[in-house]
């Protein structure tokens, strides 16, 4: 506890740095995954291609990716860009599949009704498909956020400062409190992202809250 008190400023600094670095891969991953997921949902041929590609990318262990990316892209091994690009790749890999599942979760009858009402496919995507796919999209985005926050800690091995610093530095100097603080703070940051996204979802999709409340009663009875 005294270690934490003496190092509050360092812990706070690293936490803020951790939040800052996590944001970009999460946002960028979502933006890139949207068209990819749509391709995976819409055409049979691209479905196989996209899902296989993201599946293979997701298979690559993070430390190996940090080593392979620099010579491929001509970026510095010890640069923030290296870690951010790697994390964005993982985010896209998780999210593209989620987007495809989310679009598939929309009732085809609703899609047909929108088309019958004269929606162009572009308008229908943004005003009908996407909002209705929202709950599944949100679930995917929450997984992306939590795993990005957790994976970012490995970035310390290529010199990118985050809460991971508390792991390597604490281990080298034999300070258990440092490593423990790092683990606890990483989990807290992940939970904050998760809660914020859930709140944002409830804000943007008020209808899901009503449905949850309606559905809550029968399920409660079943489990009881």
């Amino acid at each position: 506890m005294t270690w934490v008190m003496n190092n509050l400023e360092l812990i706070l600094d690293l936490t803020l740095q951790h939040i800052r670095l996590s944001l970009l891969p999460i946002v960028l991953g979502f933006v890139i995954a949207l068209p990819l997921g749509w391709l995976a949902f819409r055409y049979r041929l691209t479905r196989g291609l996209v899902l296989t590609l993201v599946g293979l990318l997701y298979t690559i262990p993070s430390l190996a990716l940090f080593v392979v990316l620099p010579p491929l892209l001509g970026i510095g091994f010890l640069s923030e860009a290296n870690v951010l690009i790697a994390l964005t790749i993982y985010a896209v890999a998780i999210m593209a599949r989620s987007v495809a599942d989310a679009l598939a979760s929309v009732d085809p009858d609703i899609r047909q009704a929108a088309t019958a009402m004269g929606y162009s496919s572009w308008n229908r995507f943004w005003t009908v498909d996407l909002p209705l796919a929202g709950p599944v999209l949100l679930a995917g985005l929450r997984v992306v956020a939590v795993s990005t926050v957790s994976l970012l800690t490995v970035g310390i091995v290529v010199g990118v400062q985050s809460l991971g610093y508390l792991f390597t530095n604490g281990f080298q100097r034999g300070i258990l409190a440092s490593v423990l603080t790092g683990v606890v703070m990483t989990v807290i940051v992940a939970l904050i992202f998760d809660r914020l996204l859930a709140l944002l979802g409830a804000r943007l999709m008020p209808w899901t809250r009503a449905r949850e409340r309606r559905m809550a009663t029968p399920t409660a009875e079943v489990t009881a």
């Binding site: 957790s150 800690t153 508390l166 792991f167 390597t168 490593v179 790092g182 990483t186 989990v187 998760d194």
Partner: peptide, 10 residues
């Protein structure tokens, strides 16, 4: 999912 495995090892 939230637990950082890298930190857990140390």
């Amino acid at each position: 999912r939230a637990l950082p495995s890298f930190g857990l090892i140390f």
